[in-house]
């Protein structure tokens, strides 16, 4: 796992501001109240005023930290955030809300990590994301929690007419457990894409899926899961519910099995509640083909190098629709050799 200093350096080199760090349950230190973007401690009294009228998940935390990010109408911004735990056995509770107003465009880059000495920490999160009319929110998350971390986010997203929400979720380093099933509702013409690249290490228990409700006419949703199984237990329950006229949904899962142990369980659920909806799903789970390994061996690569190159290809293919900066981070993670 990366050291904090390296991580921060890594994540601060893409020229994005401002930079939010949520450490354990300590309050957000830096608040911003600019015309375009406001970033407030979730406990700031102004938050209640700003979120009046928004339907929020219940905050069940007693001790917690968190932020409100509010991007004003027509604004554009990129913000980096980082969740950090520094104490063993600590339970971090995060309550976050992001509001992207009409015609605004926000890219969020989130890294999650714990210090090397931290063991058995838990990260809980309750997150509400609101994407306004014709607005865009791209939420990029790269995990780097510890091997014994447990991560339980509850995320609810609402996208108004013509808005777009994209989630790029990457878990490459080992983590003990994740349970993440965001729920997304889409109004007329709105669009959501949930893409994930997950490495399921031996001893890990990962439950990573999601639900998209296509409420508005012409709305569309995609859930694309890519899994490299190294022996952990991976489960993905992905559900798309088509209610709106001419709405479209697609679920896809590709998994490559590198270990004899572990399991990959994929459950795609498509519910058509309107005769005009179009829905599909594809799934492919299997080990690396012998033909591909032998082909690369005939190019002089030994079996291990051949397998690594094929997995790298699988990863490249999985992330090709993700932003360049996320792809660069993934390439860096791969080059650190944590898996290869």
């Amino acid at each position: 796992m990366m050291q904090l200093e390296d991580f921060l350096e890594n994540y601060s080199n893409v020229g994005m501001n401002p930079y939010i760090v949520l450490n354990d349950n300590a309050p957000l230190l830096m608040e911003t109240t600019e015309k375009d973007v406001q970033i407030l401690n979730i406990k700031n009294k102004l938050v209640e005023k700003y979120l009046k009228g928004f339907k929020l998940q219940e905050n069940t935390f007693k001790d917690y930290t968190g932020y409100l990010i509010l991007l004003a109408k027509g604004s554009h911004s990129s913000i980096q955030t980082c969740f950090l735990t520094s104490k063993s056995g600590f339970e971090q509770n995060v309550r976050n809300v992001i509001v992207v107003e009409e015609d605004a465009n926000l890219d969020i880059f989130t890294g999650c990590l714990s210090n090397d000495h931290v063991k058995s920490n838990t990260h809980n999160a309750i997150t509400d994301l609101f994407v306004g009319k014709n607005a865009t929110l791209t939420f990029n998350m790269i995990h780097s929690w510890g091997k014994t971390s447990k991560v339980f986010p509850k995320t609810v997203v609402h996208v108004e007419e013509g808005g777009t929400f994209t989630s790029n979720y990457v878990v490459w380093d080992k983590v003990e457990e994740i349970r993440s099933n965001p729920k997304i509702t889409l109004d007329r013409g709105a669009k959501a894409v949930i893409q994930s690249l997950i490495c399921s290490h031996s001893g890990s228990k990962l439950d990573i899926g999601g639900k998209i409700s296509l409420l508005g006419s012409g709305s569309s949703g995609e859930i694309l899961s890519n899994v490299v199984s190294q022996g952990g237990k991976y489960k993905s329950m992905s559900e798309i519910v088509g209610k709106g006229e001419n709405s479209r949904g697609h679920i896809e899962c590709d998994a490559v099995l590198l270990s004899k142990s572990g399991s990959v369980e994929v459950v795609p659920v498509l519910k058509a509640k309107n005769s005009t909806v179009q829905m599909s799903h594809e799934a492919s789970i299997g080990k690396i083909s012998k033909e591909e390994i032998e082909y690369l061996q005939s190019k002089g690569l030994d079996e291990k190098k051949a397998q690594d190159l094929i997995v790298k290809g699988f990863v490249n293919n999985s992330v090709k629709k993700m932003p360049e900066s996320v792809i660069e981070k993934i390439e860096e993670m791969l080059s650190h050799g944590s898996m290869f």
């Binding site: 082909y295 061996q297 690569l301 079996e303 190159l309 790298k312 290809g313 293919n317």
Partner: peptide, 28 residues
């Protein structure tokens, strides 16, 4: 092994090339 035979000097082109998703020629 196959690659050891390549190291010994045998180069082979199959009748049909194998395509590998995401692996570009420049990666090779």
């Amino acid at each position: 092994t196959i690659n050891q035979r390549v190291d010994l000097g045998i180069g082979y082109i199959a009748q049909k090339g194998v395509s590998i998703k995401g692996v570009k020629l420049e990666d090779l």
